[in-house]
Structures are given as C-alpha cells and as structure tokens.
Nucleic acid binder design. Sequence first.
DNA 1: CATATACCTCG
DNA 2: GAGGTATAT
Length: 391
Amino acid sequence: MHHRASLSVCPALWRSIPCQKAELRLEFTLSCGQSFRWKEWSPGFWTGVLHGRIWTLTQTEEHIWYTMYTKECCPGEDADASSATAALKKRQKCTKKIVPCPPPKILKTEHVKEEKEIVEDFDQFVGGNDCKKDEELLRDYFQLDVSLKELYLLWGKSDPNFAKVAQDFPGIRVLRQDPTECLFSFICTSNNHISRITGMIDRVCSSLGKHLGQLDSEIYCAFPTLQALAESDTEAKLRDLGFGYRAKFVSESAQTILSKYGPDWLERLRILPYEEAKSALCTLPGVGAKVADCVCLMALDKPEAVPVDTHVWQIAKRDYLPQLGQGNKSLTDRVYREIGDYFRRLWGSHAGWAQSVLFCSDLKKFQNSADKPDPSRKPRKRTQIKKETLE
DNA sequence: CATATACCTCG
DNA sequence: GAGGTATAT
C-alpha cells in the first residue's frame, strides 16, 4: 500500500459497502476500456479520480472498501491548520459506521498499528452525512441498485454462449460516468487502443484539469471542464500532447456544445429516449454511431445502447450472425444497426451491459482468465489476433 | 445505401 | 493496421 503509507497525516479510514463479487469485480470493470482513469497501483488496489477527489478502492468477498484523499491530506497543497481542523469538524458530524481499519487480510501489520493509533482520536466521530454522500456516490457510480446477478441469469437463459462466457467473467458492470468525461474520452478512442488512449487521457488531465493532489510521485488531476476544453488554444495543446486529428474533434465538440446548446446539454440527454440522445450526440464532430453508443451506455442511462466496435463485430460474426460475415466486407451503418437490434432482441433492455461482458472476455489481457477456447468454434481471423497483441 | 480514402501516432 | 469518423462518389 504504497500510496496509503505516504499519507501519514491523513488517517486512513476505510469504509465499506456490502457488495458481493458476483455483483462487481473491480479488476474487470475498471480496466476493460469503460473508464481510463483507474490504475491498479498495488495488487487489488485501484486509485482514481471521481467527483473531483482521489479515491482508492479494493474489495473482499462481501464488501467494497474505499478511502479518499482530500485536500487537507495532501501536504503542500493547502494544508493549513484551519482547513485541517475544519475537515476534522466535518468528520465529527458523521453518524454512519466508519470502519477505522483497513480491509482485513490485505494491509501489513505495521500499517494496521499505525491506523489504530490514529483511529483512537476518531472513535467518537463514528458516522456522518458526508460518509453517506460518499457511499451514495460510489453506489451511483457502480449502479449498485441494478442486480447484476439477476441480469446474468436472464442473459444466460436466453443465450447459451453468454452463459458459457460469463462463468469466467463475473461481476462486469457498466459504470455510470460523468457525461463530459465520457464523451471526450471516447472521442479519443477512434483508431486507437486502450494503452495509448490511457496515456492521452492522462496528459489532457494534467494539462487542462484541476490539480487535486499527489500520492507518492503520482500527480492526480480532475478531468478538464467543458469550458477548459473549449478554449481557443486547446486544439494546439492537444496536438502537442499527441492527440493527432482527434484534437480538432475534442475542441470543436466542446465549443459546439457550449455555444449552441449550453453547459448542461449533455446532462439533459440523460432523460431523453435512447434514439434521441444518440442522434443528438452524432451531431458533434468526431462522434459517430459507435462513440455515441458508448456515451449513451456509460454516461447517459441508456442500458440498451450496444456499441459495435471491431471486437463486437468479430464476436457477432463468429458466435451469433455468421451470415453477416459472408456478404459484408465492412461494418456499414446498416450492419451496425442490425447487430445492435439483434442483441437487444436477444438480451433485452440491458443489452449494452451484456455486450460489455462479452467485450471484456474478448480482450487479450483477460484471455488467461478464460477456459481454453472451444475447438468446435470458428478460428479467429488473423487480423484480430494481431490487434489483440496490442493490448 | 455501400465502398473508398484521409486523418495522427505508435508499435 | 489500430476498439473510428467524415467526406466524396
């Protein structure tokens, strides 16, 4: 727990939310290309930025454990005595159960001892409004009110292939992300792969996002605001950061949203029907059907949106619609729609969620988590194997 | 509607 | 050529 250890001024208060591993697997959900902002700095511990704060998450069989690093935790930021005191006072209002120990069986003994000493001061402040908000934030981000167990059961019943794949890939949920971060991240995904996208997102946050703090040598920044992305020099900056032709898409989309629709436009798409939200997004430069579906699914509360990228296109041809492989050379608009409609009929209202399970299972980096491929299944095309070596 | 091509950069 | 989009034909 490198990160934690460096923050001796900040009492390491881990809180927990009941959540079984069948409902959520962090290692799949946080690294399968939905969000590019979570890093597993030490095994099982995921650190990232959410709602303008740095969080570390981990999990045990029955719980998610989380801790946050707030400003007053970060020396050199604005850690004057008064703000630290204010933070303490805030903590005192807590009424919810705080678990003052790190997740069991994970941290080293000396850390536990250190935590305990600090925690004595906190014994009386068990609970809190803030804590409740924090828990609610995570429950919202992971959409924990959606029962994944029931969905897997449903999908498996109508789709034997899903049932088979799902054995090795439990707990993959769709995150409910911030619409701005989601849109601009996915504009960067065209003709690109996860490792490079991650670097680009890191750089745009460092360059245009608000500085949030430092853990060890790692600096954390918020995702840039729409306003920052719409500045007139953004395109040039992003080109310097290696965004290539996507730099223009990012800056022009941000400018279009602010000048034509207003700062709340993306948020408002959440209450529109799927097709309307999707066509609205497609009016932006750099946003086609695939990016629009990603944003609909992962930020705009449209669980039926099925993004069809080349992975899903391969999966569809190989395991579901072999007839599509014959006459169609490429993923045309018509074929794109056909695949989405097919999966919606097969899997139902949360088809996009099921899609992300298959998508994840197809990523090279998770291939070792899976069974040996079924010899009766069609062999993969060479192009796809090549592609996977990149990830 | 369908196919072809350019677009940035990296491995 | 890549987890893609926009444009022209």
